[in-house]
Design a binder for these strands. Structure first.
Lengths: 287, 287
DNA sequence: CCTTCGTGCAAATTATTTTCTTTATCCGTT
DNA sequence: AACGGATAAAGAAAATAATTTGCACGAAGG
């Protein structure tokens, strides 16, 4: 699927000549996308056929296929390799952050469990009441964002980032409701407790978290979000952006399932805002 | 620079044959990036030389250069052209949302006013107290996110999404403080009022908003965020993601300026969390 | 009627791939 | 320990395919 991923995988098994080609890709990427097979071979001190074989090894049909794949993933995947910003100059910092954010989105997309997402959307759309839980800078944002997105669709939803409230709400929830919680690390013990409580009462639970983690194991459905943890490469903000995109996907799918209801609610909210003149999120309704 | 932009520009001046080629690019993009010049020419019912000339016209050196450029801008720029997701299938919806988000980041980066960002970071780092304001689903998130990011750096900051509180805080602020506010549309009249009030008391004000808008005009410094408004193409969530990235950039720059202070504070927060065992945002401290 | 532009054809060039051969390395046997 | 065969890697050269160039033709507009 994606060249750099394959390259990472095959790295160990590469022969001398092939590694030299790989090095050029990594170090002088700009050259590599623009070069012909002969130029590339020349720079790597190998023969053109070796380059062709290298491309095939990486799962491409031909050299030109390889170049297209390369150019295509370039913008996104480049930063696997150059982990840190070159300087503290605003331009470099900006470039670095933007690239990492795009990278996080890319990785989220690649590893997205569509079935789980679909199931989640289905459950949310049918729930009589939704409880969205999350704590800490990230997950509490996820919870309130979920509320922000779903109440517009005419769904009944509340969110909480307060552990004790979460426990009480979980205890109060009914089997026709849905409890959805997120945890970046998957180790939020209180969230696990809330999930466990809910499950005992047969309330469906959904987790947005790292797969295999305690939180994931405690929930009925898990939408795995497994972004590489390397602090230097993927900082929490990038992860947060990925979560935000995931919420957007879920909310859009929910929207399709509750459409008639949603348009009516949206219209009412809009009227409300227009009456109040120029609320800040006019456009937000365009969703 | 970017092929689709050029294509958009030249559109009117294209000849019959050339428009046929352009049509294929727009409609069957996947085919176009993978095809050879002969295949592409065949599909467009033109001769290969015409394709070469077409590429040159679009500012490329050769056909292969063209393909690279095409593949390169593809992932990012593709959605200019296909505004709506093909279906309501989860896979398409996900693809669509991810692409739009990446697109928003791309556009943010391209139009970022680095000088303004740098100035903002400088002011924030030196402020005795920071007030972060924003209302509505988006901007209130921006305000609280700003607080979330900056208090970790040892800065004194509070945020509010409540209009009356904002006015009172603005009245209470001193010239050594900084007031920073965001508004997606730039038409949040209450925020304008708060800014005006602050300015009269010589409190520096910073706006993250659309350039030229009322909010922008009311502030001392504006970091413009001008994403295309087309509801269908850029939905609010994408804009929100762009804002989040912008905050990340600002916060990182601030962090570099207050480093010694920041590490001490971060250490204390970390201890606090560790003592409390496994708070959800362990990694968040990695920043 | 002439000019200009757009276009395709065919030849020339160039790039890419295939096939074949050489070289180096590893392993088992003597 | 030395030899020989097997295997993999890499290059040379040939074959193929793709791309570009030069040129000529025809249509549209002056």
């Amino acid at each position: 699927m994606d060249i750099f991923a394959t390259l990472q995988e095959e790295k160990g098994r590469l022969s001398q000549s092939e590694s030299r080609i790989a090095d050029i890709l990594l170090n002088d990427f700009e050259f590599a996308v623009n070069a012909s097979i002969i130029e590339l071979a020349g720079k790597a001190d190998v023969s053109p056929p070796t380059v062709t074989r290298f491309c095939r090894r990486l799962g491409c049909e031909s050299f030109s296929d390889f170049k297209v794949q390369l150019a295509r993933t370039a913008y996104i995947g480049m930063r696997y390799l150059k982990p840190e910003p070159k300087s503290q100059e605003p331009a470099d910092v900006a470039q670095d952050i933007i690239t990492k954010a795009q990278n996080a989105l890319f990785l989220l997309h690649r590893s997205l469990d569509l079935a789980a997402v679909e199931e989640t959307a289905g459950r949310l759309a049918k729930a009589e009441m939704i409880y969205a839980f999350g704590s800490g800078g990230n997950s509490s944002m996820v919870a309130s964002e979920l509320q922000n997105r779903l109440f517009r669709l005419g769904l009944r939803i509340t969110s909480s980032s307060d552990h004790s409230m979460q426990l009480m709400m979980a205890a109060a929830a009914k089997p026709t409701d849905v409890l959805i919680g997120s945890s970046l690390s998957g180790r939020n013990a209180e969230l696990v407790r809330a999930f466990t409580l809910a499950r005992e009462a047969r309330v469906p639970t959904i987790a947005l978290t790292q797969s295999g983690s305690p939180v994931a194991l405690a929930a009925d459905i898990t939408v795995p979000v497994d972004l590489p943890e390397g602090n230097n490469i993927y900082r929490p903000t990038s992860t947060r952006i990925a979560y935000l995109a995931l919420l957007d996907i879920i909310a859009s799918l929910v929207a399709y399932r509750v459409q008639p209801q949603a348009t009516a609610t949206l219209r009412r909210i809009k009227q409300q805002l227009v009456a109040h003149r120029d609320g800040d999120d006019r456009q937000l309704l365009g969703d």
